[in-house]
Nucleic acid binder design. Structure first.
Lengths: 211, 211
DNA sequence: ATTAATAATGAGTGATTACTCACTCTTAAT
DNA sequence: ATTAAGAGTGAGTAATCACTCATTATTAAT
């Protein structure tokens, strides 16, 4: 009555090491990719950084492009969660959301610039971004904005236009500081967030124009 | 009394053809680069598109990277001129500037996305962008903003923060529509410009918050 | 028509690329 | 200790790359 299928149990130990390798490669690929771009990175370099042989990469990922997607997909999802906290009102939501996003950008600066840079050239990246942000991210923001409009707090600006401007201000934060280093004097993310929020909520004009 | 230095005169004719080749290569390079990225483009492909031999490229540009810079430099400067028109007041300036920039982005969409994508990885591109936009573009905007603040029209928001948000909204217009195609319903640039301007000037809130 | 200068050419070059595969090592069960 | 299987290896490969250079074509003056 001895079991002959016990091979599945110890698989846990084996798998752990394999999974670690998998993560090592993903982590190394992320670093090299964000630094040099997809086409500027070589699989040899990624292997070196991950501490594995080049052939090992292709045991885990069929092609270099598959590795790229495997690197980005979870990062896109990471960026979307942590949004479903409870919020008092629409303005409070946008305030929290903004600070949260700016922290994320500060920490994952290179990654985010890399994602949008490569979205230029790779359909797969564009689709992953589109599905991730459009499918999940925006669907979280929309109800709050709609609520604000219904309550008469927000102007009835078309949602896509609002989202585009909002995302532009937030995402360009990282790009701007990278292209124009030292131009922005603020040291804290808090300060930058407050300035963006002020413009987003009230604009730059001292009094409202009526037209 | 026959001139023996007349070689300089007909140079005009020769030079014309050479200059045309030069422009053909620049134009082809621009198209290929914006489509596939710098590292994704090959000099063979650019030569084919320009209708010249591969070797000809290297008679005009010492290296591939030199070609990249030669492609981008004039485009960056192109984007800056046409800003020195006369304007009545600061608000009018920002309105004209915005519409002008949005038209430019609509027409040179791929190029602008390419520039900021490659600025990620190439110091030379980043410097060209920084010198061009910081050195010339921003210096045109700053006086108008400062004037607005002095006249009490604009809030005394720090200039870099204002510029960052403004550029973010404007530049992200092209990126957003490329990554999320079909998401924005507006058909005209005018409409998009009005929506951005409304947010920039007055914000999304119905009434100002006082804090 | 000849000539001299310049521009254009494209086959060739060495370096580099993503990817393969025959082999070795590690692991865990007998 | 043996074994079987999956994981890891790295030299090898064909393709591709930016760039070169000996040769050819073009041009403009005599």
């Amino acid at each position: 009555m001895k079991s002959n299928q016990e091979t599945e149990h110890p698989e846990i130990r084996r798998k752990k090491t394999a999974e670690e390798r998998h993560q090592d490669i993903l982590e190394a690929a992320l670093n090299i990719f964000t630094e040099k771009g997809y086409n500027g990175s070589t699989t040899a370099e990624i292997a070196r950084a991950a501490g594995v042989a080049e052939g090992t990469i292709f045991r885990h990922f069929a092609t270099k492009k598959e590795l790229l997607i495997a690197v980005l997909k979870p990062k896109i999802l990471d960026g979307i969660i942590s949004l479903d906290k409870e919020h008092k009102d629409p303005v409070e939501f946008f305030r929290c959301f903004l600070k949260d996003r700016l922290e994320l950008i500060k920490e994952n600066d290179g990654l985010i610039r890399f994602m949008f840079a490569e979205a230029q050239y790779h359909n797969e990246v564009r689709e992953a971004l589109s599905n991730g942000i459009l499918g999940h991210g925006i669907s979280i923001v929309k109800p709050w904005f709609d609520k604000g409009v219904q309550e008469g707090i927000f102007k009835p600006i078309p949602f896509p236009a609002m989202m585009r401007s909002y995302m532009g201000m937030v995402l360009f934060y990282g790009i701007f500081n990278h292209v124009f280093p030292g131009f922005s004097p603020e040291k804290t993310v808090e300060e930058a967030a407050d300035q963006i929020l002020e413009i987003f909520l009230n604009g730059v004009l001292v009094k409202k124009t009526n037209d």
